[in-house]
């Protein structure tokens, strides 16, 4: 049987016997692997992000770049990424003082460095968890872990119920005031699928932030993970965070 005829018989058979949803699922099962998106192979990537705490100078370039690239409202309640400053007095690791005015959109106000104080910056963004609490609570399948490892929102499906905003242990989501749907860091999905890095990493002047692809054997992330002291935020929550911090202090929660 030639392939055109065989395709026709298969397609009409599926249409006759199955609902369109089941037909789509059968396609996936028969193919044995997710169909590759045009021009970009979903299967070839497993995106992650690395942050080197000792390289961050708290300039806020990432915050400004993110808001510009992604049209995040400028009001200081909406952030896809932000930077926090931690100040720890002596050995008091349990009570750090944290400030992040406007999410560090304009950098940080000048504070004198106290001699008995340890201080450092902690950039934050969506951790693109492999087992995301935000995805688990979405009642309609509007937020999801993509096959290439990015947590995304389907704006046309989102009801704006805010479950995900509450579920994210890292505070990475907000309701966009115009669309009234959940909004968050997409790891600049529109950029990384075109071979560019994220807007925050592109504009980080000190190389503290880096986009990484765990499926690329040549990506420097493998050496980064192997050779450094690495931590993720809130490891006890088993979110499968893929935002890897180098030299993260214990004072950071």
């Amino acid at each position: 049987m030639d392939s055109a005829r065989r395709n026709f018989v298969a397609a009409s058979g599926k249409l006759l016997l199955l609902t369109p949803v089941a037909a789509a699922a059968l396609d996936w099962v028969l193919a044995g692997e997710p169909e590759k998106a045009p021009g970009y192979a979903l299967d070839d990537h497993w995106w992650a992000f690395t942050i080197d705490i000792a390289r961050c100078i708290g300039c806020g370039s990432c915050v400004r770049a993110c808001k510009t690239e992604n049209h995040v409202p400028l009001e200081p309640y909406y952030f896809r990424t932000w930077v926090e400053r931690y100040r720890v007095k002596g050995a008091d690791e349990e009570h750090p003082q944290v400030d992040s005015p406007d999410g560090a959109y304009n950098g940080f106000p000048v504070l004198p460095a106290a001699p008995d104080e340890k201080s450092f910056f902690v950039p934050k963004l969506c951790n693109h968890c492999a087992h995301s609490p935000c995805v688990q609570v979405c009642p309609v399948g509007a937020t999801f872990e993509s096959p290439d490892g990015v947590v995304l929102v389907d704006k046309s499906y989102c009801l704006g119920c805010r479950y995900c905003v509450q579920a994210c242990p890292y505070g990475c989501r907000y309701i966009h005031p115009e669309t009234m749907t959940a909004d968050k860091c997409t790891l600049c999905y529109h950029r990384i699928t075109r071979g560019l890095t994220t807007a925050c990493a592109e504009n980080c002047p000190s190389g503290a932030r880096r986009l990484a692809d765990l499926k690329d054997p040549k990506d420097p992330i493998h050496a980064f993970l192997r050779e450094n002291a690495i931590q993720v935020l809130k490891p006890q929550m088993a979110t499968g965070s893929k935002c890897y911090y180098k030299d993260l202090d214990g004072a950071v929660r």
Partner: peptide, 26 residues
């Protein structure tokens, strides 16, 4: 029809998220 193709979500949402224009050229 494309709901459930890759998981419990609409596969077309991947393309929607890719569509946005780039602002920083790199």
């Amino acid at each position: 029809a494309d709901f459930g193709k890759y998981g419990h979500f609409r596969a077309g949402a991947l393309a929607d998220n890719r569509e946005k224009p780039v602002v920083y050229a790199g």
